[in-house]
Design a protein around this nucleic acid. Sequence first.
DNA 1: TATGAATGAGTCTTCATTCAT
DNA 2: CATGAATGAAGACTCATTCAT
Lengths: 188, 188, 188, 188
Amino acid sequence: MNQTKRRIFEKTMELFAKKGYDATSIEEITASVGVAKGTFYYHFETKEKLFSFLVKESVRLFSNSTIAKASKAKTLSEKVKAIILVQVKIVIKYENFIRMIASEMWGDEPRNIICREEARKYINTIEKIIVQAGEQEGKQIENSKMLADQIFGLLCSSLMYKLRDENEDKQILKLEMEYHVLKYIKLD
Amino acid sequence: MNQTKRRIFEKTMELFAKKGYDATSIEEITASVGVAKGTFYYHFETKEKLFSFLVKESVRLFSNSTIAKASKAKTLSEKVKAIILVQVKIVIKYENFIRMIASEMWGDEPRNIICREEARKYINTIEKIIVQAGEQEGKQIENSKMLADQIFGLLCSSLMYKLRDENEDKQILKLEMEYHVLKYIKLD
Amino acid sequence: MNQTKRRIFEKTMELFAKKGYDATSIEEITASVGVAKGTFYYHFETKEKLFSFLVKESVRLFSNSTIAKASKAKTLSEKVKAIILVQVKIVIKYENFIRMIASEMWGDEPRNIICREEARKYINTIEKIIVQAGEQEGKQIENSKMLADQIFGLLCSSLMYKLRDENEDKQILKLEMEYHVLKYIKLD
Amino acid sequence: MNQTKRRIFEKTMELFAKKGYDATSIEEITASVGVAKGTFYYHFETKEKLFSFLVKESVRLFSNSTIAKASKAKTLSEKVKAIILVQVKIVIKYENFIRMIASEMWGDEPRNIICREEARKYINTIEKIIVQAGEQEGKQIENSKMLADQIFGLLCSSLMYKLRDENEDKQILKLEMEYHVLKYIKLD
DNA sequence: TATGAATGAGTCTTCATTCAT
DNA sequence: CATGAATGAAGACTCATTCAT
């Protein structure tokens, strides 16, 4: 990826996260990068394809982080805690982008379908980690699906929490979130 | 509200829920109701105002249901359970509409701001119920904010859960959700 | 003309004068009269026809005033002065309506053509008065056309004058206008 | 300004002048230039902004002509005559455009306000020339405001004059106008 | 590799007018 | 007499996309 392409890529990511897919025009992207409109189409096929690519890349990144952290933890219980902490960190770091995925996850456009698929795949990844960890301990996790979905719910409630206290210190926010997560979400 | 207005109103609600705000054009609404485009504007001021009205009315409905159910429960613990069950029912019944609110909650358009405000007001309502119930039992709920936010997270995870098993029997879904809710979300 | 029709008629005149033809909608007219939209069309054929009728009626009124005042004056010189004073008074009293005619005098719509015709007829009337008065004194007015047109120009400059000093006392304005008219516009 | 932009610009000016602002649609402009509708918006922000730009540019042009001609004349009296002659020439050359400004000078839309402001500024410019010329001759012009407004009135009456005799030879018209101007508008 | 002029389908909205009651 | 629901043509404007250079 050359210099220009990379800059368009990053600015697009930033703008999609800040303003959403529809509200971000190619015009605005190229203008704020400082290139001509045609340059966008020289490097990328369509707006929608770039969006999908962006989402896939990001989810792959999130997946990798989650897998890496979980693999370092030893017990089932610690793996779940580790997974939760990664989610909290992702929300803190990629807040706007996560919001945008949440927005674009519904509807019939190709990009909506891709968002749903990627979210599913991501949750399935988490589920698999938990199931495998359980098996290693000789436990069979009955409701692993629900547990994984609930981690997604946690992500949403964190977004909501941040929405209320937008000006609060991020560090405190993080600690509080960890606290409430570990308190309310428990394994058997 | 006359016959035509009601039909436009309901079709709009349906399409907004199914396809989202942006993807639903006035053209499509009126065409599928079988009236002329101008008829929409005879009955409603703008697309955006109708959207906001729709959201406010629905949230008011949800609020009333929640308050009603909670007031019938006696102990703090039962109130929380009741609230949770209402959320589950709302998600089952108004799934698409809730999704749409979740989608439109981000961004800077007037309708986005209204969605945020209504969501906040709704969560605050839930928080108040819990705090007051606690006071009546002489308990002071420390983290009522988090609890309320988490109920919102529950809503999101339910949406996600449904997303996965779209074809499953609703009744089973409901029971399972109740089960996992009552299992994982606990009071002190 | 019954009560309702008369009220629509007058409100239309008022709104046309205040906001112009295009900026005044049937909706606004009927709403501010307090009747249903259909009532307008029960009493009047179209917006454009009512406009034309309004213009014709008003110009007839202005014509009559001018003729009446001029007929009371005896000499040619006094007739001209009288005519000028009537114009000044008309501008003061029907300022907005005159402005609207001036606005609608150009273009190809039927109403534009009628405005031009009426303005022409009005100026011709003034010209005739002057010519006849001249004949009675045995004078032949060479440039009566120009003189008449210039009285129209006076009207415009009065509008312009008022535009600048919109807040000034009307009485002073009137005196000043008379002063400058009698000073600069002179007969042979 | 490239070829296409220039052609749109000129066609717009022509159509605005001939048919007025409201009666000229973007559709008509682009169709008669032979480009797509979007091309208009590629080159110009909005219909209203182009209108305002057109008016400002034109008035600037008129102002410059007036100032240039007046500066060449030496005495107060000759400056006034020169100014009048410039107005006559402007009316002959830009007749339709002047009419359009006169039409759009009333009302509350942004473009109406700009028309008023530009007209005011223009008349003020004329006033200043006269006052300064007076001072150089040691005369204090009492009613310079009126004189300036009256030059505007002259412009209107010229328009009216042309309206009547649309088919007459322009040269004759010009001479007649000069004649009546110099005869009726006099300095102390 | 990059440009930017040009496109045209699509969107919301307005409004004079009609007509059944 | 009066209503008001319904119409549909028309208008301004947006924007992803194409393409010749």
